[in-house]
């Protein structure tokens, strides 16, 4: 079936990106670069895992006609939006707090934020 293939590909992409994000968190040298790995890669991976669930729900909705799969796809979509938006804002909050608490980006070619009055 086509739907099964799409689901499999989405799950594979999602897990690969989540794994890369976790490796990045373990591997990068300071808190800002770790935030890069955390926000972008894990959010992207989770978006693809949710896409797999949405494709699954739609394919079951088309084959069974059961209304609960419509609910499943809509709720997964809402969770997806909530996750993407809150992750971006949360990363911004952590970065700002780290800078306010006196962490300078340790390997850095330039730091305009510390130079300014902000």
């Amino acid at each position: 079936m086509i739907a099964d293939t799409i689901i499999l590909v989405c799950i594979a992409i999602g897990l690969v990106f989540n794994t890369l994000g976790v490796i990045g968190i373990l591997r990068f040298p300071d808190v800002y670069t770790r935030l890069h790995a955390e926000t972008k890669t894990t959010t992207f991976g989770t978006i693809f895992l949710s896409l797999a669930v949405i494709v699954y729900a739609i394919s079951r909705l088309l084959s069974d006609g059961d209304a609960q799969f419509l609910t499943l796809s809509v709720h997964t979509f809402v969770a997806l939006i909530a996750l993407a938006f809150t992750n971006a804002t949360g990363a911004h909050a952590i970065a700002r707090a780290a800078h306010r608490s006196g962490q300078v980006p340790s390997p850095a070619v330039i730091d305009r934020y510390s130079e300014g009055d902000a």
């Binding site: 890369l20 990045g24 300071d30 670069t33 790995a37 972008k40 992207f44 070619v109 305009r112």
Partner: peptide, 24 residues
């Protein structure tokens, strides 16, 4: 843009080739 960003960050996770900094 987000897909491109993720491929970029994935590449940097694997190779460790970074040159970070804060700009305005």
């Amino acid at each position: 843009e987000m897909a491109r960003a993720n491929l970029d960050v994935a590449y940097r996770v694997i190779t460790g080739r970074i040159r970070p900094g804060i700009v305005r």
